[in-house]
Structures are given as C-alpha cells and as structure tokens.
Nucleic acid binder design. Structure first.
Lengths: 350, 350
DNA sequence: AGAGCTTATCGAATCGATTCGATAAACTGA
DNA sequence: TCAGTTTATCGAATCGATTCGATAAGCTCT
C-alpha cells in the first residue's frame, strides 16, 4: 500500500532504457531518438511520473533556480510603494530569463533570519539596503551567495543598481528656480529607520542613500531649503506632512517631494487647506509612477525606470551566476513637466 | 587552486568525528557532548563551512521549506490591493511557523509556467483563483503538491480559506435600508478577467466568487439594485465609476462599493462633483483596510480579517504537510459603522 | 556486581537526479 | 571499403547531507 512516488529510475526501467537516457529525455541536454523518447514518455505517463524532482535536480546541478529578495521592512509597507512593486515585476522578468523565481525574505523580527541560511537560494537581491543589513550580508557572502543591491549602501564589491538621484532632483529644483520660486521646502523620505516625522536638522544622520542624494540635489539650487522628513513613504504621510508645511507662517511657494506618493499627499493637503495647485503652491514628485487616487493632476516629476531597475538586477544576478563580473549600473531619471508646477505668483506682501 | 567549498564530510574529518555526528551538531536532532560539538564547530569555522547545503538537505528531507504563492495577475496590480498585502503578511507569518519562505508565482505570460514544475516547492497557496487556473492546479495535484486556495473556486478536495461575503455584505445593505435608503447602486469588483468597465447585465457571467457573493448579499435587500463593475480594484477606478454613477439622472442615495478602494474612489468622485458624503450620498466599503489617501473619513465598511486569512492558509499548509486533512475555513467579517453613511434625506422632488 | 537505562558516536544506506567519458552503431566522403 | 564523424545509449560516479539501527561507554539502583 505504500505509494512511493516513482523516480526516474522506475521510468527508465519500465521503458527499457538507462536512467541517464531517461533523464536526457526530460532535460533535452542530449539528442534522443524519437523512438526511445516516445517509450520513455509513455512509461512516465503510465507510472504517473511528473518530471524530475526539483530537489534532487538542484542538488546535482548546484542550482535551485531561486533568487531571494531581501527587504528591510515588512511586506505590507514595502508593497505600498508602487516603485517597489514595479521593481519586483521587473525583477521577476529578469530572473525569469534565468528560469528562476523569487523568494521573499525580510530582515526583521520573526526568526526568519534563518531562511537566509536554510533556504536554497542561488543569489540574493537586496532592496533599499541600509546599514542594518550588515550581518545578513556577511552571512550571505560567507555562504558564497552572489549579491546585488538595488538602491542602497552596498558593501565593497557588491554590484549596485542605482539612480542618478542627485542630478535628477537637481533638474526639478532648477525647473522651480526658473519659474521664479525662491521659498522652497523639501519633503523628504525617512533618513533612517524608526525616525519620527519631523524637520531635518543639519546634524541629522541620513542613512538612506536615496534620501540623502535627492536632498543634496535639491540643495544644489536651494542651499537653504528646509527639509521635513516623513516616517514612511505613503500618501497619508504626505498629507500629514503637507499640513505642517503649508500651515507654517512662511508658507513655501513650492514643495519638492522626494516621492510621488508624498507629492500626492501634499496636493491633497493643499486642497484641504483651500490652496490651489499649482496656482498657490507648486509641487514636484519623484518616481513617475501611477499614483492611485491622484486622478486629475499630471504630476511634475522625475520618471525613474523602476521596472528596468528590477530587470537589470535580474540580469546582474544572471551574470554573476555565470561566473562573470557584474558591474554596478546607474540609471537615469527623466524630468517630466506636468500640471502641478507654475510660475510663482507675485507675493502680495512686499 | 580549485576552491571547492567544504562539505560536512570535510568538517567531520577535520574534527575527527563521523559525518553523522557533525550533521547532528548542526541540526540538533540528537544529543552531542559539549566537547565534540565544540570541536566540530571550530573545525567548521576554520574551514569556512557555513552550515549544511540546503539543496542537499532538502533532497534528503524531502522538504525544501518553500511554499509557492500563486497569483493570477502581475504583482504590480496584485499589491495595489491592501487586502492582498495584508494577507501576504499573514501568510508569511503562517509559513514562518513552518520554517518556510514564500516563492512568488504568477499564472500569466512569460513561460514562468514551468516554475510550477521546476521549483522545489512543498506546497502552493493560490490567491483569488479563477477558473483560468485549471491546468496549473492539475499539474500541481499530479505532482502531489498540497494546495490551499484563498478566495476562489477551488477544485474538489482543495481546502479553501474564504469569507462570509454574502452575509457580510447583507449587513451593510441592511444598515442602508434601515437608514431609509431605497435607491442604491452596487459598485462591483471585476466579474471576470479582461472585462470592460460597464454596467452588469443580468446575464453577465460572474466568475469571481467574491464579486458574485457580495453582489448577492446586497441584492438580498435591494433585489433591483443596479451594479456597475470596474476593471480593477483601485481608487482611480472607483473615481471613474463614481463619476458615472453619480452623474446619472437618477442619482442613487447610496453606493455599496465592494471594496474600500472603490469606496474611496466614489467619495473622491462625489467631492469632485460637489456632493457631500454622507449628507448627499452614503457610501459603504468592504475590507476594512487602511486606505491611503482617505484621511478625514471613517469609512462604513465590513472589516475582514485579511491577515488572519493569510495566516490560516499558512496553518492549513502546515497541516497538509504533516499529513493531516486540512478543512476549509470561512472567516467572518464584522460590520463597522463609520461616518460615510447617514439617513437618506427627504427627496426634494416628490 | 550485574541488570537496565541513558547518552554519544559511528557506518552504511538513502534521497533522486545529472553528467562525463566510453562504446557502439550508423552514416559520410573519397 | 576504410578512416573519420555523428548520433544514441549506457554505466558509474557524484552532488551533500540525513537518518536509522547498532555499538559502546557511563550511570543508577538494588
């Protein structure tokens, strides 16, 4: 009664061929005559053999066909960000070219830490890494697992897929400057983990590259621009921050938001406060993603190739698995003028 | 020069013990004396051995520690839905209890189809399955891979994690009826894949359980309520649909949206049309998730235990892997009255 | 001191396929 | 017809750990 699943050996025996031949029928790695292929296939059908066991194959091959994606945050918040999901789509496509799939990993809480050691992964892509990831990275390197980082501080020798954040943000700032804006405020992404929503001081430590670089780009044109940092990248956070920014006595004429979600939030906050965008206040975003719930505005923003970034990461993984050296890549954002920026109005008070 | 990674056999040799003992040191499946454990561990450190190869372990164990999550849509759109991400979080936790991780699978496009056959997965959780998934399911069953379905048409014998959609939706409808509403319209989720945004005819085929059951619940109280189906579950779709619904000559006094996102969209559309919620039009949602960008309203909705659903799916997987029978589970939604529903106003026209 | 346990350790079998080199058969061209 | 290729097939080694039954040593209790 013990219904042990048939193995390739059983199929081979039933078909009257060697196991090696049967194997080749399934993998296609060597020529097989039509006749034997037929016999093997029908023997397999007869026995209910559904193809080689991936576990055994991956042991022999030394490859599991699985690439880990390591997040620094719970999935809930990671996937709230359309940029990340677009990246994931790109990554999916990138590793699909390898015949691989994506295993979700996150670097926090529930002893999932050991998935890093116990999961059969061929490589890992780290999303938005911060320094907190140190140990995890070390572990993986010791295991000899190839690593690629998207947007983050990579350890030396780790290929990094990045963005020209600073130059890009500078473009938006220049656009505002050209429209006559002088009083500009930056709405920044979190500078580091678990940092409360508040203004950024000069001595505030900024651990996330993205936040730092975009801020630098804005200050290239507005060196004295104040910056307010949110707690997470979401529309609601943008709304809350927007209320703070727009209600201050010296209301800025323009807000440089470091993401489209934040920009959308600012716009909502402005509407709620009875301000018109862009007549009363100009707003720029960053990312160029479709923001659900911003229907009606065309955001002035920097379009980043999120999908491409993911795909490039996949390609880098492929290269590393092939034993080649994978270089870091810096993608370029393009400036897109929308309807949320306009020339500054002549101040009513001299 | 050939830097072959050391195996447990090498470590054992260096430590002067048998491979079996060394194995046990790492797995902890049998008692080992402090002395030998120490020798093995230091030998491992010396050789740079980072623990057993998961590929080999999974062959021997017959378990890879990986559970597939099968989506019917690209991640981009799947994760737009906060319910799905919450479910994913729950699922993550559920399978973490098993020491397993999640492998992303999606049933579309790029020949990823063969991940289903070639990936070393111990089980699969299908999200929101429709009939389109037939072949995939058959494939998995043939392979003997345990399957659990969340919200969808399961094949016979497949445990299903569901919701009391109909009863729940009926509660919201009853609430509106009690407030005096008589002219109610249902804003429905897509009835099937690739169906254009439009009114639902009586003979429209509804392939998604969720859409069908919630609609039935609404019609239990409003048998003649018209239903308008969107193309995808998003705020923007809600806005578009909302425009259509609210501008019709016979404007309804209440809208029963089948999701919170759609409800949020309707509210936005109402605002844009100069209507007040709930004074001019009442709106109910479904899901009870945090909707980014709906700050200011407390949606009247049905709170579903999305996280719990995910976790239950994980638990069901665990049970099936343990060889037990996993029963289907139907979760219950709770009605939550917010500020988006109010008594119907006396019609100005008799 | 010897029966009965518990604790450590080991050897050998096993998980299920893949792959490489060898061999044989079939075909090519001069 | 014979040397030289292709084309098919096979045997055996290998991937790297886990696990089970056996064995031996160390304890406890009477």
């Amino acid at each position: 009664m013990s219904e042990r699943r048939p193995g390739i050996a059983d199929v081979a025996r039933a078909a009257g061929v060697s196991a090696s031949t049967a194997s080749v029928v399934f993998s296609g790695k060597a020529p097989v005559s039509q006749a034997t292929r037929g016999r093997v296939l029908s023997a397999a059908a007869e026995l209910g053999y559904t193809g080689p066991d991936p576990r055994a194959a991956s042991l022999r091959r030394g490859r599991s066909g699985i690439v880990g994606v390591l997040f620094m945050e719970p999935l809930r918040t990671a996937f709230l960000d359309p940029v990340k999901t677009a990246m994931m789509d790109g990554l999916t496509e990138g590793v699909a070219a390898l015949g691989a799939g994506l295993l979700l990993l996150h670097d926090d809480a529930t002893g999932n830490g050991d998935l890093l050691t116990s999961a059969p992964i061929d490589a890992v892509v780290v999303i938005n890494s911060s320094d907190a990831i140190g140990e995890a990275l070390a572990l993986l390197r010791a295991r000899g697992v190839p690593i690629v980082v998207i947007e983050g501080d990579a350890a030396a020798g780790v290929p990094r897929i990045g963005l020209n954040d600073r130059e890009a943000q500078r473009l938006a700032a220049a656009h505002l400057a050209q429209l006559g804006h002088r009083h500009v405020v930056v709405l920044a992404l979190p500078p580091r983990r678990d940092r409360a929503r508040d203004w950024l001081d000069a001595d505030d430590e900024i651990r996330f590259d993205v936040t730092r670089d975009r801020l630098a780009g804005a200050r290239d044109l507005f060196p004295d621009a104040a910056a307010f940092a949110v707690e997470e990248n979401s529309i609601d956070e943008g709304v809350r921050a927007g209320r703070a920014l727009l209600s201050s006595r010296e209301r800025p004429t323009a807000v440089i938001a470091q993401s489209d979600l934040l920009a959308a939030g600012v716009i909502r906050a402005a509407e709620d406060a009875g301000l018109r965008v862009p007549e009363d206040v100009s707003v720029t975003g960053f990312d160029g993603v479709r923001v659900d719930g911003l229907d009606g505005y065309e955001l002035t923003t920097l379009v980043q190739p999120a999908f491409e970034k993911g795909r490039a990461a996949g390609a880098a993984v492929a290269r590393m698995l092939a034993g080649e050296e994978a270089a870091s890549i810096t993608f370029t954002c393009t400036f897109r003028e929308g309807t949320t920026t306009a020339p500054v109005r002549i101040p009513s008070v001299g």
